[in-house]
Design a protein around this nucleic acid. Structure first.
Lengths: 346, 346
DNA sequence: ACTAACACAACAATCGATTGCAAGATAATT
DNA sequence: AATTATCTTGCAATCGATTGTTGTGTTAGT
């Protein structure tokens, strides 16, 4: 910057003001300085700027990991969310700092704050860390969490209407005549718990009594989910449909059913939750509850910036809708047989 | 920090040295200062520290987008890679700054450098931007790219042995008696091109002539892939197996085949590439080429830090291996039929 | 007892940008 | 012509940490 000042024959102060477009500097010099800066390829040093402005220009996006999954993030849901958040933050000129919060590190969350590396925190999911998040939210304001509203106002959340989604999914299965609808998911996670509530509500609304044996408590960990679903099948509980708490889980379920000789949707209908991009590419394509992640990300970022500005904002819920595809049996096409090696046009 | 200095009755310089463990400070005062810092909950201000040290403590991880996919990152591959990179960087005390580089922004890559926001750049994939990356690599050293080695030494790459992977996949199909093996993928991407080479090599090695009609140029974009695969089927080119350039694509192919009444692996075997966590959950489970992303991420980060230290390092290639699952027909189990609603244990 | 050697700790400059206040230059008013 | 008002620009402090150099106190050697 001092180079620019020297070249332009003005002080650094003038350069700084000119480049920020301050009206204190005359139009003429402002443009002259801009041209010089352009010519020498100058860009401000963010580190210095941030130090002076007492900010970081960065937002932390943290992914809390469940205790079972300490090795890695596996759910593609995170990626889709991350993509949308990256866009929203980039639009506002902020950087995205990515962090993983292992359940093993007791104060992983608290560290985010005391390290002061970012101006705000976006948490993708609550995992099983509601208590820690709550503690953090009480003393740290620029925090927005994607997940379920826990009722207390300890921290701001943005999340899908999980209960409604669960209800819609199960009502659809009920309409199609299914009565023994299993629930696959880990109710320790707040969002999943809400989806379960919707499931339960729908059953109750249709006068179908719920058999606890229809619940398969399956975690998100890959090996765990396979084992849990296998055990569920081994128990032999009769069922004719499954509401899986995530698309990933639905996919795993369909796969394991297939290995056990059960066809979806013929032997059991399956409905998922998330509507990831790959949900349409599962075989059969997944009927699932669509979450509007773009809208969710925008809401999260908007709320975060409002909180950073000291405004008070409240949690909000993003509506969901049911996407009907093949896995619930809604559109089963007849399956002609073809001889291998001789495939004509279809 | 000045608070600590006052409390301890020493100068800020001493505090700084004590906290960094300098031996210039006596053991006694060092510990005393540490305790005080601990007590008042002090942590260094990274912004100030980085300014003084002329670094940022941050590594940019950038995802170049193909021109077709400007709306979002969709391939779960990125997420898995990202997770591993996050771990590696965290271990070294560096932050991970995430960026998307749209193909629409001509100098999106160059901006990364002139903005000086990070001490180094990791690029996940080359997309169709080899020329830009090359230009960047010539004047900016702390850059490591995940992808295919392009022969010229314009920039350092770490990547799977795509050619060998393609060869292994196709050799396996050949061994199982398949002869009309289609290739699904977008050869404009360097990695995919290498996989195609392996495919071609394997065919040549087995003395099987290649029919150009067996190539389906399908991009990664969801809608595009569906359309392209549909067209391929519509053309009616006979085939008995598919080598898909990614797991995601393989999944889409299986799904579309299914809609057209073709069963995998009965009517056509499918082999993918990546071995994403979800590959095992596809139905049928995907035979695919496993990439060791953990090793790849470690290599990338190691090389990057070496380059940042001024050392000269070379590109390297990570070996791959074939994972055989059901989609190539290797382990087709008989499929008993069950009546819906009456599922006994299996 | 005097000096050399050494261990500690403080001073002050530095990283690069921002900004309140003061001062200089120019134009306008009486 | 003198004075005020209006524009522009510069000075210097500031953000919080790091580090070369200097200064002080202690110990050891002869």
């Amino acid at each position: 910057m001092s180079d620019i000042a020297r070249l332009a024959g003005v002080s650094e102060a003038t350069v700084s003001r000119a480049l920020r477009g301050s009206t204190l500097i005359s139009q003429a010099t402002r443009e002259r300085i801009r041209e010089i800066a352009e010519a020498v390829g100058y860009t401000v040093d963010h580190t210095a700027r941030n130090l002076r402005l007492q900010r970081t220009g960065t937002i932390t996006v943290a992914v809390p990991l469940h205790h079972e999954v300490d090795q890695g993030i596996s759910d593609p849901f995170f990626l889709e969310m991350l993509g949308f958040l990256a866009d929203e933050l980039a639009d506002r000129g902020y950087d995205l700092l990515l962090r993983k919060i292992g359940a093993g590190e007791p104060n992983g969350l608290a560290n985010l704050v005391i390290e002061r590396r970012s101006d705000g925190i976006l948490l993708i999911g609550q995992s099983t860390q509601h208590a820690q998040i709550k503690a953090l939210g009480q003393r740290y304001k620029p925090l927005v969490v994607w997940g379920a509203d826990m009722g207390d106002d300890a921290y701001i959340t943005v999340g899908s209407d999980n209960r409604a989604g669960g209800r819609m999914a199960v009502e659809h299965l009920l309409e199609r005549g299914h009565r023994r609808i299993a629930f696959f998911g880990d109710r320790e996670l707040p969002e999943i718990a809400a989806r379960f509530e919707g499931y339960h509500e729908a059953l109750a609304g249709a006068g179908v009594s719920w058999d606890p044996a229809l619940e398969c408590r399956v975690t998100f960990r890959k090996a765990g989910s396979h084992a849990a679903i296998g055990e569920f099948l081994a128990k032999g509980t009769p069922f004719d449909a499954v509401f899986a708490a995530s698309d990933q889980l639905a996919g795993a379920a369909i796969n394991i059913f297939d290995r056990h000789g059960l066809n979806v949707p013929r032997d059991a209908a399956v409905v998922g939750f998330d509507d990831l991009m790959l949900a349409a590419s599962y075989t059969p394509a997944l009927t699932t509850v669509h979450q509007d992640l773009a809208a969710g990300a925008r809401l999260m970022v908007n709320k975060l910036f409002k909180r950073m500005a000291g405004e008070d904002v409240r949690s909000s819920v993003v509506p969901v809708r049911l996407i009907i595809r093949a896995s619930c049996g809604a559109s089963i096409a007849p399956r002609p047989r073809r001889r291998r090696g001789k495939l004509a046009k279809t």
